[in-house]
């Protein structure tokens, strides 16, 4: 009923605009078509979404996995490249600094004294390679449970390394390194999951702790009764100490920055 009245209204309107009657009829016929077209539009969107969804779902898993792997690989490669570049830069600038030191030291006494100072300071700071007599301690995870201890006690923990390093320092060690990581004033030894971090670098068993100092003192400090070695052996850790006359300890590889601390002159 409403439709008819609407038709009449449109007819009247069209008459006013002086259209032919045929055109009006055509328009009415088209009106139904218009409704179908609207439904068709809705179904168009529906079928579009459906097919797009089906299509993108059928191969999405491969895409995700592939993307993740390739992305991670890409990230790794770029980071490695970055690391290599930075390392190269670091070595270059280090060479420049050494050159300056060598050149400037040749004539001026003031500068030569400064150079001595730099040498002694860098010795203390751990920024130079060192060699000398000392001891090498080898620590490895124990294979079996010895005296009813739990399994994890036979592993070398960060605290074991800390104790050894502390004992070495107390015994007068001048330079210490763990698996090539120089121990300096700000070095931290800590447990990070299955590995141990020294200077924020991962190190894992077997551990080789090198210490330069009076070899006799160092060894006796380690092997003293109920000392570190005894304690670790009791835990089931493999530990061995050897005296050596020519130990080489590498310099500290990282960077040290003081962001919060400033020199107090007063």
């Amino acid at each position: 009923m409403q439709n008819k009245s609407e038709e009449n209204v449109t007819k009247e309107k069209n008459k006013k605009k002086s259209f032919d009657l045929d055109k009006v009829i055509l328009f009415i016929k088209k009106y139904q078509i218009v409704s179908y077209v609207i439904i068709g539009f809705a179904l168009f969107f529906l079928s579009m979404m459906l097919t797009a969804q089906l299509k993108s779902m059928s191969n999405s898993e491969e895409i995700i996995q592939g993307k993740r792997e390739t992305q991670l690989a890409d990230d790794l490669i770029t980071l490695q490249r970055k690391y290599d570049d930075l390392k190269k830069q670091y070595d270059d600038s280090r060479e420049v600094v050494e050159e300056y030191q060598n050149n400037s030291a040749s004539n001026n006494t003031l500068i030569s004294s400064m150079k001595e100072q730099i040498n002694s300071l860098s010795l203390m700071a751990g920024t130079t390679d060192l060699k000398g007599e000392g001891i090498v301690i080898k620590l490895n995870d124990g294979a079996s449970v010895t005296s009813g201890d739990t399994r994890s006690d036979t592993l070398v923990h960060d605290s074991d390394l800390l104790t050894v390093v502390n004992e070495l320092k107390a015994a007068g060690a001048e330079a210490i390194s763990i698996n090539g990581q120089r121990i300096i004033a700000t070095s931290a030894i800590r447990c990070v999951g299955p590995v141990i971090q020294v200077n924020y670098q991962k190190v894992a068993a077997p551990f080789e702790i090198k210490a330069i100092g009076n070899a006799q003192y160092l060894e006796s400090a380690m092997t003293i009764k109920n000392g570190v070695v005894d304690m670790l052996k009791e835990y089931g850790v493999d530990i061995s100490i050897s005296r050596q006359t020519d130990i080489k300890i590498p310099r500290f590889e990282g960077t040290q920055t003081f962001e919060n601390a400033t020199v107090d002159d007063e």
Binding site: I33, F44, A52, S56
Partner: peptide, 24 residues
């Protein structure tokens, strides 16, 4: 005619849907 129109729209939708990629 209406069914034909709807079918045409549905087929058009499927064809466009094949060329649309939905982000995961």
């Amino acid at each position: 005619a209406g069914i034909i129109i709807i079918c045409v729209f549905v087929i058009a939708g499927i064809l466009t849907g094949l060329n649309v990629v939905i982000p995961y």
